Simulated assay, not measured.
Amino acid sequence: MGVLAACYRGASGWRLALGARMRPLGAGLCTAAGPQLWCGGGREALLLELRAAVVERRGPLVTLNKPQGLPVTGKPGELTLLSVLPELSQSLGCPSLQIVRAPGKETSGLVLLSSCPQTASRLQKFFIHSRRAHRPTATYWAVTNGIPDASEGQILAALALQHVDGVSVAIPVKSPSRRDILEGVKRTRSHFRVMATGSGCALIQLQPLTAFPSQLQIHMMLQLCPVLGDHTYSAGVGTVLGQRFLLSAESTKPQTQALDDTLLRRLRLTPAQAAQLPLHLHLHQLLLPGSRPADAPIELKAPLPQYFSRTLWCLGLCQQ
């Protein structure tokens, strides 16, 4: 077995932080070592996992590193982050916590909670004003199946929500009319930067400048580089004789991501294991305003999940 803990960025670029043994394939995705994948379980198990996932406590703010697969909200009776907040608040010795910002179910990473309604309101207004001014406050890391043509740039796309087989998915809309905009089509924008490449894949830094469901997955799909583990939108990219192209949204339905044999060998996965591969999209950093206008912004960061670090190691994305 190899050696693996995580990746870090030093003066000479991305490197592996050594000292922990790399786990065998299929092991360690749900462990007591920290939040990785939410594998279900009861209320008490989830509370224990969330307590272990606390990254930082700063005044009324509590930061969690949400495991991939945990829904933030849901239907009455479903086990979600929101449904266990009262017990989590009590367990952490906080007044009633509320969610200020959180990534979606399939995305891992930073969850920002607050026990002060005034602080929560101030931060929510800050995020809204930042989006209107197209100032990024959230930084995601993603591993993509494919490498963008440009090393850095902005992705612009008009998106709409559509129900496909009872599931709500985002679809791109070409040349939206004014009526389309009034009926719910939204112009979206994200900034991307390629941080490392290897084995036909890339480690990408993504900063959404607008907010729309599945925006980042759609934007990378439009670059012909779907996020690894995206079993919804990667089907929008077709391949003929090694050349990738976009399929029409009307002819595409969500389906399990298909990986070629070379990539499967690099990842040390069987096709059945690849069908269960988690979405490699992680909310790594949030910027918050300082206490006073002249103060520097506050940076909050969440470590990568183990499966994400394992993928970086397998693909050689930590060596640049």
Rank of each mutant, 00 (worst) to 15 (best):
residue 163 H to L: 04
residue 115 S to G: 03
residue 130 S to E: 03
residue 146 G to L: 01
residue 164 V to T: 07
residue 130 S to G: 06
residue 149 D to I: 14
residue 155 I to T: 04
residue 157 A to E: 02
residue 153 G to L: 04
residue 151 S to N: 07
residue 147 I to A: 04
residue 115 S to Y: 00
residue 164 V to M: 01
residue 165 D to G: 07
residue 141 W to F: 14
residue 163 H to C: 08
residue 135 R to K: 09
residue 150 A to D: 05
residue 139 T to K: 02
residue 114 S to A: 14
residue 151 S to M: 10
residue 134 H to D: 07
residue 146 G to D: 05
residue 144 T to P: 05
residue 139 T to S: 04
residue 165 D to A: 09
residue 145 N to F: 15
residue 127 F to P: 02
residue 145 N to G: 07
residue 147 I to C: 13
residue 144 T to Y: 00
residue 151 S to Y: 11
residue 133 A to Q: 10
residue 159 L to A: 09
residue 148 P to G: 04
residue 138 A to W: 00
residue 162 Q to E: 08
residue 132 R to G: 01
residue 150 A to L: 14
residue 129 H to N: 08
residue 120 A to K: 02
residue 144 T to N: 10
residue 125 K to T: 12
residue 127 F to H: 10
residue 143 V to C: 09
residue 161 L to Q: 10
residue 143 V to H: 07
residue 116 C to Q: 08
residue 165 D to Q: 12
residue 161 L to G: 05
residue 128 I to F: 15
residue 145 N to R: 11
residue 116 C to W: 14
residue 149 D to W: 05
residue 142 A to S: 08
residue 149 D to E: 12
residue 127 F to K: 00
residue 150 A to C: 12
residue 147 I to P: 05
residue 157 A to H: 09
residue 123 L to K: 04
residue 162 Q to Y: 08
residue 116 C to V: 00
residue 131 R to L: 01
residue 156 L to I: 13
residue 133 A to G: 10
residue 134 H to W: 10
residue 145 N to C: 13
residue 124 Q to N: 11
residue 157 A to Y: 08
residue 136 P to R: 13
residue 137 T to V: 13
residue 152 E to N: 02
residue 161 L to R: 08
residue 117 P to E: 05
residue 144 T to D: 08
residue 150 A to Q: 11
residue 136 P to H: 08
residue 123 L to H: 05
residue 160 A to V: 13
residue 159 L to V: 04
residue 153 G to E: 02
residue 120 A to L: 02
residue 150 A to Y: 11
residue 157 A to D: 04
residue 119 T to H: 15
residue 158 A to N: 00
residue 138 A to F: 06
residue 114 S to R: 14
residue 154 Q to L: 15
residue 144 T to C: 09
residue 165 D to V: 02
residue 139 T to E: 03
residue 147 I to K: 07
residue 161 L to H: 06
residue 148 P to Q: 04
residue 148 P to R: 02
residue 149 D to N: 13
residue 139 T to F: 06
residue 125 K to A: 14
residue 155 I to W: 06
residue 138 A to D: 07
residue 121 S to G: 03
residue 159 L to G: 01
residue 135 R to A: 02
residue 162 Q to I: 03
residue 117 P to V: 03
residue 119 T to K: 12
residue 141 W to I: 01
residue 117 P to R: 05
residue 123 L to T: 07
residue 125 K to D: 06
residue 124 Q to I: 06
residue 119 T to V: 06
residue 155 I to C: 03
residue 154 Q to A: 12
residue 148 P to C: 03
residue 158 A to S: 15
residue 159 L to W: 09
residue 132 R to W: 11
residue 136 P to M: 07
residue 156 L to Y: 15
residue 157 A to R: 05
residue 148 P to M: 00
residue 124 Q to S: 08
residue 131 R to T: 02
residue 126 F to N: 13
residue 160 A to N: 12
residue 141 W to N: 11
residue 117 P to C: 03
residue 143 V to F: 03
residue 129 H to M: 12
residue 163 H to P: 01
residue 164 V to D: 02
residue 154 Q to E: 15
residue 131 R to G: 00
residue 150 A to V: 02
residue 147 I to Q: 10
residue 139 T to R: 07
residue 136 P to A: 13
residue 132 R to E: 13
residue 140 Y to I: 01
